[in-house]
């Protein structure tokens, strides 16, 4: 990419700036400056819907004598987050894979085989899922984490099944979305007047300021309204499901956006070339 300059995309002379405020493996807080609102929102949307992860998509049930029905358990299994670092590189989408059904290149097999033999309630959790691929395993925080509850069993009940985890995106099903909600806002003082405060008496007492207000200049009393101003700084805050590192989600989303732009550019170029010949 270099024949279209950065400023042409972003509309800002200096390139985009990221200011990282908090970074943990499962959550992140940062602000992004010098980009257009549409790009900023595009990143948010890409993080929710376009970042690929692995999730259980096919369940072959061999024995299920629990009280829960097969599709109930299958649905629960699907929602269990699986560690999906570098999934976009290491796995193909099943629909694009060369295999007929599914194969190691596009899927991971996980097995569950539990039977309750004791006379008390047993909890089947995501820890009992045994993956064929060490990189794609159910998410746990640490060794103490009991895992995500799948079903409860009493004595004599059994659950035996084979799961096929596939690569997918949140657009298709929410189970593939690596994030929950993504916090996103800009202009905490509403200087741009993109919104109208609903007030009874006083704006300041009725509307608590967001924590991002610290980073911006409070409006000066009597300051004229700048109708040419555009939003510049965007505040992001989100937590992942655990399937990916928070920073990887951001990076992955950027790659995806970039790939999309590339695609668009290529298409446009081709269109241009076609027009030349005509």
């Amino acid at each position: 990419m270099n024949d279209i300059s950065l400023s042409a995309i972003t509309g800002f002379d200096s390139g985009p700036t990221v200011q990282l405020k908090e970074l943990e493996s499962d959550h992140i807080k940062f602000s992004l400056s010098n980009v257009d609102l549409s790009v900023a929102n595009g990143i948010r949307r890409a993080m929710i819907a376009d970042v690929p992860t692995m999730a259980i998509d096919l369940v072959e049930i061999e024995t299920n004598t629990t009280v829960l029905t097969d599709e109930f358990i299958a649905h629960r299994l699907g929602l269990i987050p699986l560690t999906s670092t570098d999934v976009d590189k290491n796995f193909a989408y099943t629909r694009e894979c060369n295999c007929t059904d599914y194969c190691n290149l596009c899927s991971v097999e996980l097995n569950l085989n539990v039977k309750c033999t004791e006379d008390r309630t047993m909890e089947v959790t995501s820890r009992e899922l045994i993956s064929q691929n060490d990189n794609i395993v159910p998410v746990t925080i640490d060794d103490q984490d009991p895992g995500i509850l799948i079903a409860k069993m009493r004595k004599g009940q059994e659950l035996k099944l084979k799961c096929i985890a596939k690569k997918g995106t949140g657009k298709e099903h929410a189970k593939w979305s690596p994030v929950c909600g993504v916090g996103f806002d800009y202009d905490p003082y509403n200087k741009l007047r993109h919104t109208t405060y609903w007030i009874e008496d006083d704006e300041k007492t009725e509307w608590p300021l967001s924590e991002n207000a610290k980073e911006e200049q409070p409006p000066i009393e009597g300051e004229p309204f700048d109708y040419n101003a555009v939003p510049n700084k965007f505040y992001y805050k989100f937590e992942t499901t655990g399937s990916m590192e928070a920073k990887d989600v951001v990076l992955s989303s950027l790659n995806i956006l970039q790939a999309k732009f590339d695609e668009l550019r290529n298409e446009l170029k081709r269109e241009q070339n076609m027009n030349q010949y005509n």
Binding site: A40, F184, T195, T196
Partner: peptide, 9 residues
């Protein structure tokens, strides 16, 4: 869709 805040609360 747009990333803009809604005009109303």
């Amino acid at each position: 869709i747009t990333g803009e805040p809604l005009e109303a609360y």
